[in-house]
């Protein structure tokens, strides 16, 4: 199964919220939907789910116009919301039936997910009696109740402690492996890097970056080298060597870091020359590898670019 958004454009009044957005999400993979606040992520999600139509463009499943009666969605909105005063099991069954389950199946599924999230004992309590983290787990259970084909998670990890975050991680991985399409929107880049094979970065309604996360990272210049020495004194010697011109003109910059130093080369082809110079220093080398940019760096750089352009 493949979900795609093709040239989706949406305006609210004068404001262009989405401008020619393309997205592809495949079964068994997680897609990271990234963007700063107000970039248009929620609008894109709503268009995918059919809350409102795009001004132009299409949403397709397997190259055919999406039929929302045959594709089941599970949506965890960023603005969490259920009925605070209603009993948990009641409302879980309700949302299950709204998405096409029979009452009986909905009840079975609700109980299964409550158990999965270790929330079984709360099934007859009103939602508002639960802690924020537990409410969050109920919200996730509601998202998954109808065994959705497409799961859209907007900031699923906010408000969860490490134990529950681990539990959720396990469930998300399990869903991805079982062949679901997962769209994952978050500002917590470490989670995105962990789960997502592909990303779509949008800013002010425009696509900034799209594609396989590995390839994106590899496409960046591979001129940043992480170096680790056994002896911490070696870093000082390396800096003086650079300042005295002993490294020639291949090194642009040296940043000291907690666990070593990052050397930025003028040209990535000079890597072996750098290594040779390091060996000549005579200290024992523990690490020498190309440091890829983190998603966070890419995000800040790309979104920053966008700001400058405007």
């Amino acid at each position: 199964m493949e979900l795609s958004a093709l040239s989706v454009t949406k305006t609210f009044g004068e404001k262009i919220v989405l401008d020619n957005i393309n997205l592809t999400a495949r079964a068994g993979q997680a897609l990271g939907l990234l963007g700063p606040n107000g970039a248009g992520k929620t609008t894109l999600i709503r268009i995918i789910m059919g809350v409102f139509p795009p001004d132009s463009g299409r949403i397709e499943v397997d190259n055919k116009q999406i039929s929302r009666s045959s594709v089941k969605f599970g949506y965890l909105p960023e603005e969490r919301g259920l009925y605070p005063k209603h009993k948990i099991l009641d409302q879980m069954i309700y949302f299950g039936t709204l998405r096409g389950l029979s009452r009986k199946t909905a009840e079975k599924q609700a109980k299964y997910w409550l158990e999965r999230f270790e929330m079984g004992q709360y099934q007859n309590s009103p939602l508002l009696t639960l802690s924020k983290g537990n409410q969050q787990k109920i919200q996730l259970a509601v998202t998954l109740i109808c065994d959705p084909d497409i799961i859209i998670l907007d900031e699923p990890f906010s408000g969860l402690d490490p134990v529950n975050a681990g539990l959720l991680k396990e469930i998300v991985v399990e869903q991805v492996k079982s062949g679901k399409i997962v769209i994952f929107s978050s500002h917590q880049m470490s989670y995105v890097e962990e789960f997502c094979d592909n990303i779509l970065l949008i800013n002010k309604g425009r696509m900034v970056l799209e594609g396989n996360l590995r390839q994106i990272k590899r496409s960046y210049a591979r001129n940043r080298i992480m170096i680790g020495f056994e002896n911490a004194d070696a870093y000082g010697e390396l800096t003086s060597l650079k300042n005295s011109g002993g490294l020639g003109n291949i090194v642009k910059n040296i940043e000291k870091q907690d666990d070593g130093a990052v050397v930025t080369l003028e040209n990535e082809a000079d890597r072996n020359q750098l290594l040779a110079s390091l060996i000549n220093l005579g200290h024992s080398i523990e690490a020498f590898y190309v440091k890829e940019p983190s998603l966070e760096q890419i995000f800040v750089e790309r979104v920053g670019e966008g700001y400058e352009q405007q």
Partner: peptide, 15 residues
């Protein structure tokens, strides 16, 4: 109330 509690976000995407 549904709007205020944001239950609407789920309702509108479920029905």
């Amino acid at each position: 109330t549904e709007k205020n509690s944001r239950a609407m976000e789920l309702l509108i995407t479920s029905a």
